[in-house]
């Protein structure tokens, strides 16, 4: 599961950075995937399954996305393509913003990648597929949640940025003029004004970040517990019925 960030909440530079990072990763990954066209139908099928699994009713206000499980099956590189495809299709009907597709892709890819590496590590110690898959899924989702909170923190969701820039500009300009009148050198003025601006912004970010985290945490926990258990049960089932699928994933 993941929390969808809608359009218009994050600053432009941040979501553009999301697209940039995703694009760079794609530029690195896609040429390597050209040698693996045999896997394309399976990746397409897994993406379709991911979209369909979201529609399975759980009796709870969350849905599954099973990125960790898909990561285990398709591997690190293809997970990036799955994450992008799922997010684009979800965004196309309003689940998560189109401008956020880049960042959301990174969030889902982190889930899959962390899941793959952690699973290889955990299975050596636990030897229990259900426990390993469940714990690994929970940790991966938690890492992804931390990244989400990090994104919101970095975004400096300062309400005044949304309402109007005038207030902040005025404060900065006043500081500038006051400093200018006292004839302090230009560099010092710049530093001080920047510092004043930073302090103001951070203060607001902190407030909204705490509220946001408090609100999101229960939804995350509920979704993460459900997804971890379901992933554990799926892995246990697959291990029993078609073990080579999981064994293959350990050799990726």
């Amino acid at each position: 599961m993941h929390i969808h960030i809608p359009d218009g909440v994050l600053p432009i530079w941040l979501w553009l950075t999301g697209f940039l990072v995703t694009s760079i990763l794609l530029v690195i990954v896609l040429p390597k995937l050209k040698k693996e066209i045999k896997k394309i139908p399976m990746v397409g099928m897994m993406t379709a399954v991911a979209l369909l699994v979201m529609s399975i009713p759980l009796g709870l206000p969350v849905h599954l996305n099973l990125m960790v499980l898909i990561g285990l099956i398709v591997g690190v590189r293809w997970s990036l393509v799955v994450a992008l495809t799922v997010n684009f299709i979800l965004a196309s009907f309003g689940h998560g913003g189109l401008t956020i597709v880049g960042l959301n892709t990174l969030l889902l890819w982190l889930q899959a990648t962390a899941g793959i590496f952690l699973f290889r590590f955990f299975i050596k110690f636990f030897k229990n597929y259900f426990a390993s898959a469940s714990i690994v899924t929970f940790i991966s989702l938690f890492l992804s949640f931390l990244l989400l909170v990090g994104i919101v923190a970095v975004s400096q969701v300062d309400p005044r940025n949304f309402l109007s820039h005038k207030h902040e500009h005025q404060a900065v300009e006043t500081a500038y003029h006051e400093n200018h009148e006292s004839e302090v050198n230009t560099e010092k003025i710049k530093k001080e004004t920047e510092h004043a601006r930073e302090e103001e912004t951070l203060a607001h970010t902190k407030i909204s970040l705490i509220t946001f985290t408090i609100l999101s945490l229960p939804i995350f926990l509920l979704g993460a517990v459900v997804e971890s258990l379901v992933t554990g049960f799926v892995v246990q089932f697959v291990r029993r019925v078609k073990p080579e699928l999981i064994i293959k994933s350990l050799k990726h």
Binding site: L52, I73, F233, Q236, K242
Partner: peptide, 27 residues
């Protein structure tokens, strides 16, 4: 709830296996 999630897990597991086999056939 746990039994329900286990049942959902088995259903999804079956779907995964069948889908992968079908994708191989499609290829």
């Amino acid at each position: 709830p746990i039994k329900t999630l286990k049942n959902i897990g088995s259903t999804i597991g079956r779907l995964f296996i069948h889908s992968i086999e079908r994708s191989e056939k499609l290829y």
